[in-house]
Computed example of a mutant assay.
Amino acid sequence: MSRGSPFDELERLLDKMNDARERAGGGLAVDVRDDDEQFVVVTDLPGFEKDDIDVEVRDRTLRIDARHDEEFGVDESDYVRQERSKRSLSRSVSLPEDVDDDGAAASFENGVLTVELPKLHTSEESTSVDIE
């Protein structure tokens, strides 16, 4: 039975710690699905608008930031009770394989963000190199 490198185990532990921290702090919960040719990441962002969300892919890491813009001109003395808060959420997800950053696509519908990340395939075939 083959074991991965110590760095693979360290990455898994860091992911578990990040997941636990996000759950404890009410952060973003994500589903990451492997569809052979791409990873599909889905997260619920109820109450946010498309313009409130930033998605970035870099070095096998997907980062999602969602934040409400501050409302200007609202007189807080008009409120009898105010329990909803302006909040920001963020999450970084390490991906198990390299992805094509330029081919990434995201959609947002009914409070659900879906990010599609095509896998970056390296050729298994050898290439002949001419010697000059």
Rank of each mutant, 00 (worst) to 15 (best):
M1T: 12
S2P: 14
G4L: 04
S5F: 13
S5V: 10
S5G: 08
F7I: 11
F7L: 15
D8A: 12
D8P: 00
D8M: 08
E9K: 03
L10V: 07
L10R: 06
L14E: 14
K16E: 15
M17T: 13
D19W: 06
A20M: 11
A20S: 14
E22I: 05
G25D: 12
G25W: 02
G26K: 02
V30H: 06
V30N: 08
D31L: 12
D31P: 00
D34R: 01
D34F: 03
D35E: 15
V40D: 08
V41L: 06
V41N: 05
V42W: 02
T43G: 01
T43V: 07
D44E: 15
L45D: 10
G47S: 02
F48V: 04
F48K: 00
E49D: 12
K50H: 13
D51T: 14
D54Q: 07
D54C: 01
D54V: 02
E56T: 09
E56R: 03
R58I: 06
D59P: 00
R60P: 01
T61K: 13
L62N: 02
R63E: 11
I64L: 05
A66K: 01
H68P: 06
D69Q: 13
D69R: 07
F72Q: 12
V74R: 10
V74K: 09
V74F: 13
D75Q: 08
D78S: 13
Y79V: 06
Y79I: 04
R81K: 11
R84T: 11
S85Q: 14
S88L: 00
S88D: 05
L89N: 08
S90L: 03
S90N: 13
S90G: 14
R91A: 10
L95G: 03
L95I: 04
P96A: 14
E97W: 09
D98H: 04
V99W: 05
D100I: 02
D101K: 04
D101N: 13
G103R: 00
G103Q: 11
G103T: 04
A104E: 08
A105L: 03
A106F: 02
S107H: 05
F108P: 04
E109D: 15
E109S: 12
E109V: 10
N110A: 15
G111K: 00
V112T: 15
T114S: 08
T114R: 03
V115W: 01
E116I: 04
P118D: 10
K119T: 06
L120T: 07
H121A: 09
H121K: 07
T122P: 00
S128L: 11
D130A: 15
I131H: 10
E132P: 11
